[in-house]
Design a protein around this nucleic acid. Structure first.
Length: 128
DNA sequence: CATGTGACTGTGG
DNA sequence: GCCACAGCCACAT
């Protein structure tokens, strides 16, 4: 038999397991609420994988396929633990993230979500 | 398989 | 509260 060596089939740019999981959770964030990279990572089991979450969201935004789905990933609702829009520079325009949030009623000042603590949506607690 | 990178986070000074 | 360092995860080269 040929030894397959289990090669990852050419790494399909869309939807790896981890990425898919991230997208699923992010889609569950209600409009007008926000979550954090760390909270999502923790919910997925990788408590220290917050960077990977951002990595996945970045991919979702760049990937036109993923971005144009019927249920696009609301990546603008994911911010860092300080309530800052740390990912804003990865959107089509530097202000897109803030504008999308404000369109949902989330106030943003100085690249930071106002009342972040109150709007914070933690999948580990909300979804349980 | 080693190295580098990043939309992060926790800890210590 | 701010800055510097270190740790972890997934992915590209």
């Amino acid at each position: 038999m040929k030894k397959p060596a289990a090669p990852p089939p050419s790494t399909p740019p869309t939807e790896r397991n981890f990425f898919h999981d991230v997208y699923e959770v992010v889609r569950l964030i209600p409009p007008g609420r926000v979550s954090t990279y760390g909270a999502i990572a923790h919910y997925l089991g990788t408590r220290q994988g917050s960077r990977a979450v951002g990595y996945a969201l970045n991919a979702s935004n760049l990937d036109a396929l993923t971005a144009k789905r019927e249920h696009p990933v609301p990546a603008h609702r994911v911010i860092n633990r300080l309530g800052q829009l740390s990912g804003r520079h990865h959107f089509p325009t530097p202000t897109a993230m803030q504008e999308r949030l404000e369109a949902e009623g989330v106030r943003v000042e100085d690249a930071t979500v106002v009342d972040f603590n109150r709007l914070f949506w933690d999948p580990s607690k909300e979804l349980e």
